[in-house]
Every structure is written in C-alpha cells, then in structure tokens.
Design a protein around this nucleic acid. Sequence first.
DNA 1: CTAACGTGCAACCTTGAGGTTGCCAACCCG
DNA 2: CGGGTTGGCAACCTCAAGGTTGCACGTTAG
Lengths: 94, 94
Amino acid sequence: MPDPFDAVFGALADPNRRHVLGYLANHGTATATELTGELPMTRQAVAKHLVTLTDAGLVESERAGREMRYRLTEAGGDWDRRLDALRRHLEGGG
Amino acid sequence: MPDPFDAVFGALADPNRRHVLGYLANHGTATATELTGELPMTRQAVAKHLVTLTDAGLVESERAGREMRYRLTEAGGDWDRRLDALRRHLEGGG
DNA sequence: CTAACGTGCAACCTTGAGGTTGCCAACCCG
DNA sequence: CGGGTTGGCAACCTCAAGGTTGCACGTTAG
C-alpha cells in the first residue's frame, strides 16, 4: 500500500462516517449503541463503520466495563477540524 | 445534497482518480487516451473517472478538434496541492 | 442467581462502483 | 474520398462496501 491516503480517504468517503467524526469531536466519546441513535442504521452497521475509522487511524477505543468507548485520535481530530474549516470555506466563498 | 463533501470525497477516494489529479497538475492538460497510458485500465474506464472528477468539480474539459482536453479546475488544483502537502506532512512527520 | 444490557462474531443479502467489450459517430491526414 | 484515430454511448459483468439478522458472551444491577 504505497499510498497513505487510501485508508483515510476511503473512510472519509462515507457521509455516515464523517458524521461519526463530527459527533465524536463534539461529544468527546461515544459508544456504538449511542451512535446508533444518530444514524439511520443498526448498531452492527455502526460498529463496522467504527472498525473502518479505527483501521484508518482516525478513531481509537477503550473498554469501560461492558461498554466500549470510542474517541478521536489526534489524526481524527485534525481531519475533523480540516473538514469543518473547509466546509465553512466552501459555503462561505461559493 | 446537504453535504458538499459527498462528491469530492467520493471522487478522491479512488487512488486512480488521485493519480489523474496529480498527472493533470504536472502536465496541465491531458486526453483520456493519454491518461490510459498512465493507468492499468481501458480508455473507457478512464473516461468514467474523468466524468466523476468533472461531476465533483475538480476537473473541466474542452474540445480541441477531435480531442477532448481535460484540465484541473481551480478547486481541483487546490485539492492537489492540499493532498501533496498532506502527503509530505504524513511521510515526514510520521 | 437472574434478568437486562452492551458487545462481538458470522452468515447472508443487495446495490452500485469500477471495469470490460462492442459498436458507431466525428475528425484529421493522405 | 477513404483509412486511421479519438471519443461517446450502452449493455454487461464482477465484487466488495454497506447493511441486516441471529446468536452467544461478558457485565452490571437487583
């Protein structure tokens, strides 16, 4: 895999995953079950997205009892800020 | 289409399309046939990628006789520079 | 202990992205 | 004009991403 962007852009290509990124940026942490309330799909589907985000290095997780709490990695936070700035730029500048 | 990123990230998710972006950034313009020499696929497949890039607003085209010359839009150039800077950042800083 | 909750794993289904082939129209050169 | 290029259109194929269901396991509360 010569291109370091494959995983990241693959992960970022899905709007649901971008939404997860934004949610985690706003709330700090979340569980798969909690995120299920945010997205029009089952918990299993959300879990798969979280795996994709984790593989891309954008999200990390930690077990807390029976819960699994997800949070942004540093790279994930970078991307979320980048996306947010870019969105404002696009919406503002044309 | 509430999210302006859908088309752009969808387009950027494919490594072949990122390669096209890079090629156009280096060469100014190119035809589908010319790009076919750059990618492991048929001209038709390249043409489809060019449609995707055009729909995302990253590339524009102009007819020149029997040729169809493609070039980066301003947004496409922005993205290419962004990607290039980002790649160097990732490869350099870990 | 037991019921309820949250998670993880695996099989399965469906759709569309990515690619191919075939064919036909437009254009350039001789 | 006629032959070789360059492009565009459309049908078709394949495969994996995205989603669902079903179930078994650990954890917590009562």
